[in-house]
Each structure stands twice: as structure tokens, then as C-alpha cells.
Amino acid sequence: MIRILLADDDELIRAGVRAILTTDPGIDVIAEAGDGREAIELTLAHRPDVALLDIRMPRLDGLAAGAEISRAAPSVAVAILTTFGEDAYVARALDEGARGFLLKSGNPRELIAGVHAVAGGGAYLSPRVAARVIGELRSSGLSRATTARTRTAALTERERDVLALLGAGLSNAQIARRLGLVEGTVKGHVSAILTRLDLRNRVQAAVLAHEAGLIPE
């Protein structure tokens, strides 16, 4: 069972997101918060598997609350709830430890898939957000894609396979099944990838995988 803390200052949005999540029998929304400070307090009290935080909240926004949660309770996966067009916040969220960016107004199945991905140790960008972010990166010039390909060329073929699947949002267990490896081996590959490419977390690795063209479109 995936235990969720849901934080959004709009009660109607919270009710809608909760209704979507609870259609999955493997998800349980155990606590709800209306602002960032309350989200931190409830996270520390309940230790959910995932803290699902709206970007715009009173007292403390979702990005700042997520950063504090990542520092104080690193076992809790932070995912950011957003609306299309707020993807300018993605870079800041990645730097502060968020593992996912999920659209409130997206396909309900994507919301559930994203929760499962981050709860399982993976990273997840809603496809519409990922397309927008990667599109903006590409529009800044071909140098980013060239740089990304150059960086990932230093990886072994197996590490590139792992990075591509990581970028697609798969957890270590899912990557292991896909590649016929044991989960501990995949964990070692992921650690090596983050170290060799000087990346802070799996979501940064996912963005790099997109930039390098490792993920089929």
C-alpha cells in the first residue's frame, strides 16, 4: 500500500485528486494539508511514502515545503502537483529533491502512474510537462543535446540502457525485470551514473536522458 500525504490549499482540487488516487486500491491518502507548513508537520508525523504537494500554497509554497521534507525525511518521495504552464519551476524543484512533476489536469492514469513511479524509487515527469521542458531545452540551441550526448557517451552500454529506462520513469525493480538483472545491480548502475555524470538525483538523470535522445519518442 502506497501511503500519500496530499497538500493543496484548494479543497475542491484536493477532493478531485483524492478521488482519482483512491480509485487505485494500492493507494491510501492518509493525510491532507492546506498549506506548506502543515504539509511538513503532517509528513513528519505520519511519514507517508509520498508527499504530493501543490506548487502554490500559503505560508510556504510546495517547492520550499518539498525541499524541507527532502532534508528532514529523505525516505519520503516528494512529487509536485502543477498546472500546465508552471514548468518554469521544474529546474528549481529538481535541484531541491523532487522526484516527480504531475499535472492536476492531466490524464488520471498518469497521476496514478506517477505516484507509483516515485513511491517505487523512480522519477516521473508528466509527459506534457516533459515535452514542454525538453522542447524549451532544445530551443535554446543544439549545444545542450550535443553536450548531453557527449556526457552519456562516457557510460557503458549497460549504463545507457539503465539511464534510458530510468528516464522513462521506471523504478529499480522495473528496470531489473526489463533488463534481466538483479535489483542490487541496477542500484549500483544508477549510483555510478549519478556519480559519473555529476547528477544530484534521478529526475536530473531523466532530463539528461531526454536531452541525449536515449528515450524513444
Rank of each mutant, 00 (worst) to 15 (best):
R59P: 00
L42Y: 00
G66V: 02
T82L: 03
P48A: 03
V76C: 15
R71E: 13
L63Q: 04
G85C: 00
G36Q: 12
L44E: 11
L21E: 08
E32R: 08
L44Q: 12
T82N: 02
G26H: 13
H46T: 10
D49N: 14
P74Q: 14
V76R: 15
I27T: 11
G62P: 10
P74N: 02
A67I: 05
A19G: 14
G36P: 08
T43W: 09
D35M: 03
V29M: 12
R59L: 12
D54N: 02
A67C: 00
A31W: 03
T23R: 15
L21A: 07
A39H: 12
I69K: 10
T82M: 03
R71F: 07
A31S: 10
A65M: 15
A33V: 00
E68G: 01
E41R: 13
A33I: 00
V78P: 07
D28R: 07
H46D: 00
G66I: 05
R59W: 05
L81E: 03
V78S: 08
G62M: 03
A64L: 03
T22E: 15
G36Y: 05
H46K: 05
I27D: 04
E68F: 10
A77C: 05
E41H: 09
P25T: 10
V29P: 15
D87T: 03
P25I: 03
V76D: 13
A72H: 13
